[in-house]
Design a binder for these strands. Structure first.
Lengths: 338, 338
DNA sequence: CCTGGCACTCTTCGCACGCGAGTGCCAGAC
DNA sequence: GTCTGGCACTCGCGTGCGAAGAGTGCCAGG
């Protein structure tokens, strides 16, 4: 077990390293933090910390830098979450209050997070899993060509082309439209598949193919709509990553382009409370030299989506966590109001 | 005026520099391109080209690299557009054919362009300004509440809520829907106002208020929802920019985050034909070390939006232009089909 | 107008060297 | 036991220098 002072030494190392970006030595430590002991003592502590794998030296005769394990301990035990100052809070609220619609809320949130943390921000759109169908519209564009329009209670509209296997009469169309709406209007997305399953049976044989096609397109649309989208911003902050640029930054940019990767990343984070994934704790190896701080947010008590930031493992964890938490909180408020 | 051979020398310099990323000297030139003259002669030509400002040397006793002016001449006079090979064409078509909706078309286009050119791709969503109305749909959500759905020929769908001043019967609704569509379907946005002006007169007094409301909402949608959006991709290709990383890449990333900047950038490009903006020709100074190749695309003969790529001034212009043109062409086809 | 030759200029690279930061260890003090 | 001061040792980093090499500009001759 590590003594109290050794933990303090680790904390000091993390803080200094985050500030200076340079390996920190025993002498500098005793000068900048009054630990009340001499450099020699600190050296012993450092040796112990290194044995335990919390810190490492890039090369002999250099100072120490924290390892992922060191950051982990720091985040878990040694550092709190730095609360935002009142002016910061006001700024956040003012900025988010100006949003006009959902897209705008998300866009502003991304900007805000990126600015506050000076890192890359990722914001997931509020999930639609609980949304319902308001209306389904079918329009005939050509004899064997329909357009399917889906309107959700969140005001979102999705449309799809449907190529019919056979011409579909106007009366059949009206019939299908009416039956479809009476079954699914007001229902949750997840319930729809079961509700329309037997619909083709109500139609003439010649129309069944088309009906099935329409239905499967509808189901596809629902699934896709349900699919999470996200927005990222602040990529310019990647330039502050480190000196060994190209190699570090490239896989990160690639990861950021793969929304699937990011969604999985956010998805893996715990549902409640803030999650910090440090370096190799990230499953995606392109992000092995980054840390991801994420948290759920939502309109009610429930989290409907996540947001977070991606930055170098050498980041200001307390500050970042404070900003992420505060932003999530205010976004939740905004969503609840609208 | 520059002699024919000097132009050839310039062309060779550009080609070699693009390939090697290193200043090219007189000797290497004569070896790799059989110009039929000796290095000494080439040196004289180079001196002349340098006097005219087409090439420059990073430092004395280094080879020459093209200046922006040199690239300009190269693009205008010395290089053609390299056509895609048949297999490439097929690949493009196949890839784009898989798209399910407009968002998907745009997303795929971005990926495709980024992959083909190995640069940053920018695709603007089809604009509504020059498109035509395919269909207007009116849905009754509540007795005095309608939803107006506008479908454009580019596959874009916009929707609006309409609060009616008075309840609006189902038959009136059908009537309005029919009249509206017969007047505006297939017409350009800009023509719509004149076409629907007198529509309220055809209705009973009690419905006129609602009809007017619907019409003004429609006109609003046509005008206001002309908001331009765009999608970017391939930012990971920025890592191939050069050796002097952070300084070059940072402003580019910043520019890419500012959609306004990008839209202006694309907007400034000529409406017809391909536009190449090289280095300092770009108004936005963050992009002074990049070139932008853009072209309009559209469903018919007319361009409804632009797409393009952003890359280092040292890029393969013929290849890039070929890819951009080909992609624009196929996207246009896809849009026309759907 | 082209060509070969030549002198000149710079950059780059390798290498040796010294400095300084930082470490590990040990003997002694509290 | 724990902390401290001292000391020898290790390396990385910056500097200076010299050689090598690439490339140029210019000139005289074909």
């Amino acid at each position: 077990m590590l003594s109290e002072r050794r933990l303090q030494v680790l904390r000091a190392i993390v803080q200094d390293y985050v500030g200076t970006e340079e390996p920190v030595g025993s002498k500098a430590l005793t000068e900048r933090h009054n630990l009340g002991v001499s450099p020699a003592t600190v050296r012993n502590d450092m040796a112990a910390l290194e044995d335990e794998g919390f810190i490492a030296q890039p090369h002999t005769s250099a100072g120490r830098i924290p390892t992922d394990k060191g950051y982990r301990l720091f985040v878990d035990k040694l550092a709190g979450v730095k609360p935002m100052t009142p002016p910061e809070r006001r700024a956040i609220q003012n900025f988010l209050d100006g949003a006009v619609d959902l897209d705008d809320v998300v866009a502003r949130t991304v900007r805000l997070l990126a600015q506050l943390t000076r890192q890359v921000a990722v914001v997931q759109y509020p999930s639609l899993t609980r949304s319902t169908v308001r209306h389904v519209e079918l329009l005939s564009l050509a004899p064997a060509r329909l357009m399917l329009v889906l309107i959700t209670d969140t005001g979102r509209v999705e449309q799809r082309m449907v190529d019919c296997p056979a011409p579909f009469g106007e009366s059949s169309l009206a019939d299908l439209r009416a039956r479809l709406n009476s079954r699914v209007a007001g229902r949750r997305f997840t319930d729809v598949p079961g509700l329309v399953e037997d619909l083709p049976e109500a139609f003439e044989a010649e129309d069944r193919g088309t009906v099935s096609t329409v239905l499967s397109t509808l189901l596809e649309t629902l699934v896709e709509e349900n699919e999470e989208r996200l927005m990222i911003g602040g990529t310019a902050n990647l330039t502050r990553f480190g000196h060994d640029f190209p190699l570090t930054i490239r896989p990160v940019l690639e990861a950021l382009e793969e929304q699937v990767v990011l969604l999985k990343l956010l998805g893996e984070a715990g549902d409640s409370g803030m999650t910090v994934r440090i370096g190799h704790e990230n499953a995606y190896e392109g992000l092995n030299s980054t840390s991801v701080v994420s948290v759920g947010y939502g309109s009610g008590g429930e989290a409907v989506a996540k947001l977070g930031v991606v930055g170098p493992t050498r980041m200001d964890y307390p500050g970042t966590m404070g900003a992420v938490r505060a932003v999530a909180r205010y976004v939740g408020q905004i969503l609840a109001e609208s």
